[in-house]
Amino acid sequence: MRKGVSGKRDLHEGGDGVKTKKKWYDYLWVASLTYLILGFFNILFAWLGLLCFFIPLIISLAKGNKAYCNRYCGRGQLFGLIGGTFGLSRKKDIPGWMKSKYFRYGFLIFFFIMFFLMLWNTYLVFAGAQDLKQVVTLLWTFKVPWRWAYHGTVISEGVAQFAFGFYSVMLTSTVLGFFTMILFKPRSWCVYCPMGTMTQLICKAKNNMGGKEV
């Protein structure tokens, strides 16, 4: 009897490297999901999405690692949950061209261009040269009326224009990631995620400068 009990304990304690306990950051998918939902109610919440831009950049610049992707990315966790745990994924290999450097860097550049166009449109509204457009642009093409989520802003309409533009970026990438989640592996978005590509490039630059050959 005693032997059995101690044996059982050994199994738990001896589980070298076996992960059972979840950490607080394993639940960041809740934040990602909440963010997407909030955008349906008040578009100004879109500004919070800047955290998903600055935190990974700061971590990679300061620490030279991809801890954001590896641990904290709520979007990756969300895809992992829906595609992996709930099984909404074919779990097939991603096509070779999608993981090629050409596509990954190309997509990063394309993303950058679209991002700066969005910033330019925000500037035009700030400057009063253009009216606020209460639309969310999906996949850089489809303009979806989003009037219900706009309840006015205090500073300038440009603030709202940025929110609409930024939410478009976030929703578009979620939609793309969702499609590739279904078609390929759950987290296939991670393969061509512009933030992931950018932080990996930063890490390469940073860790190569330290004299480490990779």
């Binding site: 991670c190 390469k204 860790n207």
Partner: peptide, 25 residues
């Protein structure tokens, strides 16, 4: 390693903690 995107999915799923993401690369 040349095609790895360093996302860390493998590290998360490894039951032996045998995988690390080397320098974020």
């Amino acid at each position: 390693t040349t095609d790895c995107v360093a996302c860390g999915c493998c590290m998360k799923v490894c039951p032996r903690s045998a995988i690390t993401i080397s320098g974020g690369i």
